[in-house]
């Protein structure tokens, strides 16, 4: 069997009201989204506990995307402000732990920004392909 090109695994948390709809829109608009992404829908980006992100990395995600409504557009008044706050902590944490800062992304995507979603996933995939698999990832030895 020929050597396959390594494909990263990217975990995306999408909020129900904006970025999940944005991902949907990307599909409706027939945009190419790399198949590296695994989407988990949450009701709000404020629901994303930092522990979710850490667990995602431990479970073998090469990058984690945190996405939500634009600041000020949150369905739950101000919950994405909290996301932004926690992301600051996560960014420092991941950097200090010795993972590349590119393994963590925060993006605000509205329901109509399908193109933005597709573009972001492409960009992340490219970057992760360059830096290689996460050192936290455990491959099963055959």
């Amino acid at each position: 069997m020929a050597e396959e090109e390594w494909e990263p695994k990217i975990l995306a948390f999408c909020c129900n009201w904006c970025s999940y709809a944005g991902a949907d829109a990307a599909g409706l608009e027939r945009r190419q989204v790399p198949p590296t992404i695994r989407v988990i829908r949450v009701m709000c980006s404020g629901r994303i506990d930092p522990a979710f992100v850490l667990m995602g990395l431990l479970e073998g995600a090469d990058a984690v995307l945190v996405t939500g409504c634009h600041i000020g557009d949150c369905h739950y008044v101000n919950a994405n402000y909290k996301t932004r706050n926690r992301y600051e902590f996560l960014k420092e944490f991941v950097d200090e732990l010795g993972l590349e800062p590119e393994r963590l992304w925060l993006s605000w995507i509205s329901a109509s920004e399908g193109s933005l979603f597709a573009e972001m996933v492409r960009e992340v995939t490219e970057k992760i392909k360059k830096i290689g698999p996460s050192p936290l990832r455990r491959e099963w030895k055959k």
């Binding site: 431990l58 902590f89 455990r138």
Partner: peptide
């Protein structure tokens, strides 16, 4: 779990960062 670093340590360190 067989994580490289356990969730216990990661969460504890994270919660104490500030």
């Amino acid at each position: 779990d067989s994580y490289a670093i356990s969730m216990y340590n990661l969460v504890r360190i994270f919660h104490l960062m500030d």
